[in-house]
Design a protein around this nucleic acid. Sequence first.
DNA 1: CCGTATCCTACATGATACTG
DNA 2: CAGTATCATGTAGGATACGG
Lengths: 128, 128
Amino acid sequence: MKTACPNPNAYAATCPTRLVLDRVADKWAVLILGLLADEPVRFNGLRRLIEGISQKMLSQTLKSLERDGLVSRKAIPTVPVTVEYSITPLGRTLSATVDSLRVWAETHIDKVLKAQKQYDAGVQRRAA
Amino acid sequence: MKTACPNPNAYAATCPTRLVLDRVADKWAVLILGLLADEPVRFNGLRRLIEGISQKMLSQTLKSLERDGLVSRKAIPTVPVTVEYSITPLGRTLSATVDSLRVWAETHIDKVLKAQKQYDAGVQRRAA
DNA sequence: CCGTATCCTACATGATACTG
DNA sequence: CAGTATCATGTAGGATACGG
């Protein structure tokens, strides 16, 4: 079988890795994968759990994650229909990483906000 | 001292963690931090190493990373001026995570591309 | 060498309404 | 419940030129 990407390198402009990196390094994707890593969740469940996500972005991001093989969609023919999203084995190889990204943000938010204030104060001083 | 964010939660719409997550979960930020984790690099050095990044995005992303306290900028008064970017201690707490994101992308790119083809084939079949 | 300023366009995203 | 369709809009980001 021919390898799709002989020597994957995210620093090369044309390597498809760049595209994939751009997709998984996405706010909504990180949050979705973080939830699905724990347990399958339905569409509106995700919508409730991820505050502020629009129906459009949720639908769009889920479709993209499904296309990338990271999430699987299972429609259960109840009335009305129930759709369950779960993480795939491939997705599971990524979930720990993206989740640690979220955890980092939550853990270091105070330091970041502090740094921002200091930076802004410095810029302000220079502008004055 | 009052805590900037009492109970950081990226799933809450108004928590500043959401904003920070959005910034660090960024293609260019990931690639920049990955390089600076190894050694300090100059502006045009980064520009050469990260294929396809525009001067604008590099400047913009560096400024953002500096403001967040993840990267530090040091101007050396040669002629013409030399500017060295390096990672901060805070940035170092993040670099391993973002770099594993890049490594994941490079490692699993083939599986992702394969999943995409299968997905597209399925959609095509349904549309036909 | 290291940027900033400006212009311009395409796309990302939200809002809203509608459907199976 | 789980979406899709459409419209409206802001803005991310490229190209280019200029400045310190």
